[in-house]
Design a protein around this nucleic acid. Sequence first.
DNA 1: TTTAGTGACTAATGCGCATTAGGTTCACGG
DNA 2: CCGTGAACCTAATGCGCATTAGTCACTAAA
Lengths: 336, 336
Amino acid sequence: MKDIARHAGVSQSAVSFALNGRPGVSEETRDRVRQVAEELGWRPSTAARALSGEGAATVGFVLARPADTLGVDSFFLQLVSGIQEVLAERHLGLLFQVVEDVADECAVYRRWWAEHRVDGVLVVDPRTDDPRPDLLDELGLPAVVIGGAPDDRHPGLSTVWADDAGAMASVVDGLYALGHRRIVHIAGLPGLAHTERRIRTLRAEAGRRGLSEVKSVTTDYSDAEGAAVTRRVLEGVAPPTALIYDNDVMAVAGAAAATELGFAVPADVSVVSWEDSALCRMVKPWLSALSRDSVEFGRTAARELTALLDGGSARAVRVPVPRLVERGSTGVARGA
Amino acid sequence: MKDIARHAGVSQSAVSFALNGRPGVSEETRDRVRQVAEELGWRPSTAARALSGEGAATVGFVLARPADTLGVDSFFLQLVSGIQEVLAERHLGLLFQVVEDVADECAVYRRWWAEHRVDGVLVVDPRTDDPRPDLLDELGLPAVVIGGAPDDRHPGLSTVWADDAGAMASVVDGLYALGHRRIVHIAGLPGLAHTERRIRTLRAEAGRRGLSEVKSVTTDYSDAEGAAVTRRVLEGVAPPTALIYDNDVMAVAGAAAATELGFAVPADVSVVSWEDSALCRMVKPWLSALSRDSVEFGRTAARELTALLDGGSARAVRVPVPRLVERGSTGVARGA
DNA sequence: TTTAGTGACTAATGCGCATTAGGTTCACGG
DNA sequence: CCGTGAACCTAATGCGCATTAGTCACTAAA
């Protein structure tokens, strides 16, 4: 800025006013300063800006997953991509960190907060009994929870969520209409808010229809567990006629396992994946899947966070209910 | 720091000396200051540190991919995970950005540099005729190129690379030994350095053995193109007996396409994937794949970058040659 | 007894920006 | 002709830290 001031023949303050749209300089001078700044390729030092109270111009994103669990998962990359798109417009940086568990994640938030490193954070994989909302409230760190249900106890946090309950209800509706009465839901990690929501909804739906042979089994989202659970339930007595998998990886692995056991898909057993991706079109038959726009999900979350940073108040935003894309893996229940 | 100074009954300078291990304070005072800092949960403001010449304590990572291409790809997430692991030890942040193309990527580097936002960057997907090394040289931004071959013209850049040439040679060796003479390599994006290296090596190996029916076809890495190219080459006259795919997504899609066309794997056509992941074990038969440790790849790259930041000189590090994991998709060539 | 030296600390400065408090000039009204 | 305000600009300050240049007391050497 000193250089710009010298080149333009004005004081540093004038440069600051000119470049930040503050009053106090003539339009003429403003233009001249702008031009010089342009020529010099000047960009404000984020450090200096941050130091003089402008915030860090950075948003944090922590992914709490053991390194070996980071497998084939298109969701996060797409989510991040959407987040970026919105943040980039505002020249906000995304500070990304992978940690082992939620405790480490909390430590990262504390550190970022103490270091004034981020202006806000995006929280994923909310859990039942989650320590993070309390912490973020305590720290006063603006935050958007992605995938959590609206939560009255944390009025400071925004929430961007998909209606899992509604989606589950519609999936069960569809399967029921096809004659399915024995349904197993191969769920994701226990303790995750959306896992629990889906499980609760499935139970409620089953109860409503008087279906006793409907249950959920939790897993770690891996192909291995997806296949293992599939084998276990299909080898039992009165095996299910429909399987709902909480992600695409397990759905594909599960469908393969079923086929190996001699169960034809969808003649003997229908398969639904709760995540749509190229994976679902890599097996025969193609898997019916709940499709949602993860990139848009990310955009929405980022928009909520920037709104919060702009001083807006927190709110809960519901993204469209995932849509069931019927492909070849769902059909009429055997014997129905 | 002012608070700490007050609580400990010393000057701010003393606090700074004490906490940074500088001489000028007694051990007794140092301990007291440390303790007070601990109690107050103090962490230095990164902005202030950066402003007083300590660097931004941040490393940049740009992924130049159109949003819709960010599909099922375990490589990057694993790579980032490994990078993180090393950076976290040093309390270095990772600034992550997704952009459309290399031109945008260069713009991001320029901006980061001007804003003093990062101390160094990690560059992925190096290309033939890549503008990035020149730019980074010009900016004087420490950088590690991931996946590029050593490059004499940029003595300032470190390189972490895998020996694609060696791996390709060994794959061709193996296939040749199994009697394969007609081999098609379904390569990735043209222009990527490693794509070109593999193509060149394949051609050389074919030439050495006098094989005329060996070729490479470039794609965009998508399952769709993988399948399309597979169909095209298998439907031609004298179809290949072995297919080498540059990633797991195409390998799986290609294997499925081959099966659909009535080509049994591996009886009629052998399939090798250049990327190993859970995907390769989701189809029957399981795919033989070149396996490498992406997490460790990331760790190595991050270590090289931190070495550079510590003032070390640039070097080229070769990671172990990917190992071919023989599974069910490779076999003796029909008629051999 | 003086002097130099050393250990332990404080005061002062600068990093690059935003901002607040002052200045100077000019036009206009009384 | 003075006072007054507006328009435009400059000087000075602070953000939180690292660092350099002192300051002071006390000890060992001369």
